[in-house]
Amino acid sequence: MDNIKVFGAQFILISIIVLLLASMITPAWKVYQIRLSINSGTPSGDSLAERYLILGDWPASTNGFNIVEHNQYFKITTNKIPAMQNQDGLK
């Protein structure tokens, strides 16, 4: 009887441990998958969300609009504008 009680207690404890681990690993994995889905392979990023990520932050807010889900509508086009070659722009 005592062994059954101990086994029961261990089962509950291990279940709680697994639940806690899953509650953290699952969202971490999901976030990683999202990151892979918007990766363009360019060091500066080719979309609003990707560049924000490269600069060190996740583009999250509480206003209900998920920029990552709508990533395809926020592609950066100004990368094509050439920078100055020197302070006066002469090569």
Binding site: S23, M24, K30, W58, A60, S61
Partner: peptide
């Protein structure tokens, strides 16, 4: 929420 480690958001 913009923390890179805010994946529990």
């Amino acid at each position: 929420p913009t923390s890179l480690l805010g994946f529990m958001r």
